[in-house]
Amino acid sequence: MAKRKRVIESTHVRDGKRKVVEETVVLPPVISSDEPPKKQPKWTNRERVLVFSSRGISYRARYLMNDLRALMPHSKQESKMAKKDQLYVINEICEMKNCGKCLYFEAKKKQDLYMWISNCPSGPSGKFLVENVHTMNELKMTGNCLKGSRPLLSFDPMFDQEPHWSLLKELFVQTFGTPNFHPKSQPFFDHVFTFSIVDNRIWFRNYQILEEDGSLAEIGPRFVLNPIRVFAGSFGGTTLYENPKYRSPNELRREVHKRFAQKYVSRVQAKKSLEERKPDEPYKRDPTDDVFLTIRPEDTTGKAKNTSYRNS
């Protein structure tokens, strides 16, 4: 401010020398340094994701959930939900937690893991069966990354080919992508989330960027999502898409049981049919063979006893 003033004064002096009246100096309305500091467009995307599960999940699923929480700085936690609660309750939980997206892991029969991904108040939502889970703790995953650095999201071109895939892609982008300038995030890029479609399933991988020329190391976790349904609402509503190739693990287990049961049944049947197929006489006999076979009177039974006797 002071500097400015001086400059103005000096001009005044000069003007005074010339003695020409030019005192109407147009000054800018606000001095640039007085301007309020330029606001950086920081953290405009306030997306939060609620990551939680139902009761009774397996340890592996729990580890997977924790890995996702570690990798997503914009995630929020919630205690496990009782199974008897209806799913639409989750919408209210999300509202309470200020979350716009939700990843809900639902365990069934202590062995099957389902994952819901949902855009919370208004939908859509998708339900998947989670298969082939490998967590970040496995020693074969050699990569590492900053906790909370923003991931690049890599998608298979298949995601743009069918409407249900593209809808799921948008859901994944908004859920797994960390908002820019998130306070818990790091400003560097050192890992990639990969979503690929093979065998009508979505395969998730997480790689560390070792060098920017494209050498990678896997960090984990890995899992496969087998889509079941896509709903218009959040955790319910009309079904928009139903996977025709999906077969529930219950069904598959039943088939296995049946196959084993069939083994016994077929064995018994085979025995029975063998009995039936066995001929009464193994080879053709000449009926005249036993013409001269006679029964001794001592060996006769029944009425024949009366007809034959030994002369003595």
């Binding site: 855009n119 859509p124 999201l153 890599s154 998608f155 071109p157 995601f159 992508g177």
Partner: peptide, 17 residues
Amino acid sequence: LAELKNGLGWLERLDLT
């Protein structure tokens, strides 16, 4: 899908196909 899209820039989304 149209309803879900929030029109954020690529720097927010970081998605690539």
